[in-house]
């Protein structure tokens, strides 16, 4: 048996390794997530203590020697009164614990949903199976749309308006906030805030169809200056390519079915039903967190989207072999 003990211990230890990292609510990176993690630990501690006390009392009661009763109908009031007192005290304690936990939870939620002013408002729309992100701005020319990647400035609360284009999705970036559903025909609101720089992963947490598991969102937290620089670059239209290979790639993009769904600002491509590709080269991932961004993966995704993400709405576009590379180079260069 001795040999097998490490094997038995490994699974629980593996579970513990999941407690930190870029997608974990036990590794909070913002005030909202701090509140929730605090709530989680308070509940875990109190309920573990209750469980331990109950189990101890149960074991003690089972092991205690009881004097044998001679007469079943005999009334012995003294020990019964003691028992009644114990049960009454335990019930009162239960009530206190339940009420206290309710108050703690209510206080945390009040703080979470209190709203308040935020300098930045995003609209995040869930689609089967990707996220459309619109940065709102009072000036229409400073408003822009991107996909599957949110950039936020460190230390500033960001309002997220959640919507859905088709079915119910749920937005959850565990390191930053709790989860919130995106419901068709409704706008849900959430506040996220990052307290230090980093990259955090979010995931759709409401089963939404075939590729639900491949519907991730990445949140990148920068310093305010870096964020402003990023925002300016995203607002600008795509730069026209200067080398001949990328020019050919752009020509292929514009003459193929790509333009029916995708938009590249600064070109005639103005489709609105698929992710905006204006600055796709600047993103960390493609296909909603399915593949790391890069020329090879872009080419793979164009050539065989249904092999990578079966059921996704990106159709197979039949290109000639020599057309794939210029196209991938063109997209890669859209920084």
């Amino acid at each position: 048996m001795r040999c097998c003990r490490p094997a038995l211990l490994t699974p629980p230890l593996l579970l513990l390794t999941a407690c930190s990292g870029w997608q974990s609510s036990l590794d909070p990176q913002g005030p909202q997530a701090d509140l929730l993690a605090g709530l989680f630990w308070v509940f875990t501690a109190v309920l573990s203590a209750v469980w331990l006390l109950t189990m101890t009392a149960l074991v003690v009661a089972l092991l205690r020697r009881h004097p044998a009763r001679t007469e079943p109908l005999e009334l012995n009031t003294r020990p019964e009164r003691g028992m009644a007192r114990t049960v009454g005290a335990a019930a009162a304690l239960t009530l206190v614990v339940v009420v206290a936990l309710t108050v703690v939870s209510y206080g945390a939620q009040r703080a979470l949903f209190s709203g308040g002013e935020a300098p930045l408002t995003l609209k995040v729309k869930g689609h089967q199976w990707w996220w459309e992100v619109t940065y709102e701005d009072p000036g229409p020319s400073r408003q822009f749309t991107t996909a599957n990647e949110i950039h936020v400035p460190v230390g500033q609360p960001v309002h997220v308006k959640l919507e859905s284009a088709d079915v119910i999705h749920s937005f959850w970036v565990p390191n930053l906030a709790g989860k919130m559903d995106a419901i068709p025909g409704r706008e849900n609101r959430l506040v996220i805030q990052a307290s230090k720089e980093g990259v955090f992963r979010g995931q759709c947490t409401e089963f939404c169809g075939w590729q639900h598991a491949h519907m991730a969102i990445t949140v990148v937290a920068h310093s305010l200056e870096d964020f402003e620089r990023w925002r300016e670059s995203q607002i600008s239209a795509a730069e026209p390519p200067d080398d001949p290979v990328r020019k050919r790639g752009m020509q292929i993009f514009l003459s193929r079915p790509c333009v029916m769904c995708h938009q590249i600002r600064g070109t005639p491509a103005a489709g609105k039903v698929a992710p905006d590709l204006t600055h796709i080269g600047s993103r960390l991932h493609i296909a909603a967190g399915t593949l790391p961004n890069g020329r090879g993966n872009l080419a793979a995704w164009i050539v065989d989207p249904q092999g990578i993400k079966p059921g996704a709405h990106m159709p197979l576009i039949k290109l000639n072999a020599e057309e794939v590379e210029p196209l991938a180079r063109y997209l890669e260069g859209l920084k």
């Binding site: 065989d304 249904q306 092999g307 079966p310 039949k318």
Partner: peptide, 12 residues
């Protein structure tokens, strides 16, 4: 059957 992946070989 849901056929997601048409034959990639045939030309457009």
């Amino acid at each position: 059957d849901r056929e997601f992946r048409p034959s990639p070989v045939a030309g457009e």
